[in-house]
């Protein structure tokens, strides 16, 4: 039964998501790095791990009062610690999601979809990327569509993973992988894969 998106998420639930995501990224650091080494420069895992470790430290030190404050804190922390392209992109994702959260004390399913969609729109604007460019947009777009059509978080996770896998046959149009031309074919985009972890950890955090 996929009722995991049905109830509201308060700040505590979103913090649980962030802690879960931090742990998941540490677990998959080597996998992300290997994907990036194939078509980028091999630092995606290390950079995201550094950023989310910092997020955990911030959350140990302070307790944001609202979902908006939490999402903004995560965004600012990532922007100030990740660097590369992933820092501004993931940072923008959480900053824009936070703006969309407004003053709500908790996010119901529609609110969650609204925030994630705002985050995705921010990523597309910052990175000037569209679906099919072989980027994180290719995982986030189907995931948020699945969630928006009341598919539930587990389905969103599956859609994200399928979207990421579907980046393998593509030629990259953004980022360093784009320099490779056809040599990027056959490799899953590392940013799409870390976006899968973002969605899956949301499902796992419940």
């Amino acid at each position: 039964m996929d009722d995991d998106g049905a109830r509201g998420r308060d700040t505590g639930a979103l913090i649980a998501w962030m802690r879960r995501l931090a742990a998941t990224i540490r677990t998959h650091e080597a996998e992300l790095t290997a994907l990036d080494a194939a078509i980028g420069d091999g630092d995606h895992g290390a950079n995201l791990a550094r950023g989310f470790n910092k997020v955990e430290q911030k959350l140990d030190a302070e307790m944001p009062a609202t979902p908006a404050a939490l999402l903004r804190l995560v965004g600012m922390t990532l922007i100030g610690s990740v660097g590369g392209a992933a820092g501004p992109l993931y940072g923008t994702f959480f900053l824009e999601a936070g703006k969309a959260a407004g003053s709500a004390a908790e996010l119901d399913e529609a609110g969650l979809v609204r925030c994630l969609a705002a985050g995705l729109a921010g990523v597309k604007a910052r990175g000037k990327a569209e679906p099919g460019d072989k980027t994180m947009v290719d995982a986030l777009t189907p995931a948020i569509e699945a969630l928006g059509s009341r598919g539930g978080l587990a389905e969103a996770g599956r859609a994200a993973r399928a979207g990421a896998q579907a980046t393998a046959p593509l030629i990259a149009r953004k980022g360093r992988a784009s320099y490779l031309g056809e040599r990027a074919i056959g490799h899953v985009d590392p940013g799409a894969m870390s976006s899968v972890l973002l969605i899956e950890s949301l499902a796992e955090a419940g």
């Binding site: 630092d43 290390a46 550094r50 660097g83 590369g84």
Partner: peptide
Amino acid sequence: PGAIFTSPTPD
């Protein structure tokens, strides 16, 4: 200077 082969951050 950023991390190795990684852009520095805006701050």
